[in-house]
């Protein structure tokens, strides 16, 4: 789905992402975790080809139009510049698929309808997107990315600022998409939700890939101390994996 080989992104001479290699397969739901400034966003933008990078990225190597059909990208900044309807925003996800100068076809409308339904936004269809709350706007933008109907979805902190129910619903929607054969890579700060819903966690710290594996393999006391400076509780019981950060290590 995505192969990175020694991807390095520099700001000036300082490598913000330092020689990261990663292979992502079909159907994975990857949580990209790490403290602030670890290089999560830069890694994703470099992998997408939105930043000049050294090393190889299978996505950045694609022609721009083809890449837009392979991967949908949700930046962290949730920008909706004009007071357009929710349906219009979601339909923007169809941009890479529309024929030159063409109007939306039935399959475009179907993709928009499906994306709206998936994020529970049918009732919001004709509302003005800029007048919705921040959390609702976040769901609209996730629906926009879903409407792009790509095998791979990359999202930068898609659940930040959502209420708990919307956070869980979004993580479950991503997990469902992964189960259907899509691949999701999401930068996350909520380690508890990441541990519960992601099939694989990739930990970034100081620009390097610090760990990579299932949540159980990755969220060890040693790694948490090294990468996050945290002590945490992690158990796997009848309710699934439960992770709770406990205290900051001195």
């Amino acid at each position: 789905m995505l192969t990175l080989d020694a991807l390095t992104v520099r700001r000036g001479t300082c490598p913000v992402v330092d020689s990261v290699s990663l292979t992502v397969g079909k159907g994975e739901f990857i949580g990209l975790i790490g403290p602030n400034g670890a290089g999560k966003t830069t890694l994703m933008r470099g992998a997408l080809g939105l930043l000049p990078a050294e090393g190889q990225s299978s996505l950045a190597a694609l022609p721009v139009a083809e890449r837009a059909r392979q991967v949908a990208w949700m930046p962290q900044a949730r920008e909706i510049a004009w007071p357009v309807s929710v349906e219009t925003v979601v339909a923007l996800g169809r941009t890479p698929w529309l024929p030159r100068g063409g109007r939306p076809r039935p399959e475009d409308r179907a993709a928009v309808d499906m994306a709206l339904a998936r994020m529970g936004l049918e009732a919001f269809r004709d509302r003005i997107a800029t007048r919705l709350s921040g959390g609702e706007q976040a769901r609209v933008l996730i629906a926009r990315a879903l409407a792009q109907d790509t095998p791979l979805l990359m999202a930068d902190e898609p659940i930040a600022g959502l209420d708990p129910a919307a956070q869980i619903a979004t993580m479950e929607a991503f997990a469902t998409l992964a189960a259907e054969g899509h691949t999701i890579i999401a930068a996350l700060h909520d380690l508890g939700l990441a541990a519960r819903h992601c099939s694989r966690l990739v930990v970034m710290a100081r620009g390097r890939k610090e760990a990579d594996g299932t949540p159980q393999e990755v969220l060890t006391p040693d790694l948490l101390a090294r990468a996050f400076g945290l002590r945490a509780h992690f158990s796997d019981g009848p309710d699934g994996p439960i992770f709770q950060p406990l205290s900051v290590l001195g």
């Binding site: 933008r45 997408l48 939105l50 890449r67 837009a68 991967v71 949908a72 990208w73 949700m74 930046p75 900044a77 920008e79 909706i80 510049a81 004009w82 357009v84 925003v89 923007l92 996800g93 941009t95 890479p96 933008l141 926009r144 792009q148």
Partner: peptide, 10 residues
């Protein structure tokens, strides 16, 4: 409308 980054990725 969705910002330069999102537009470029589309």
């Amino acid at each position: 409308t969705l910002g330069e980054d999102a537009a470029e990725a589309m």
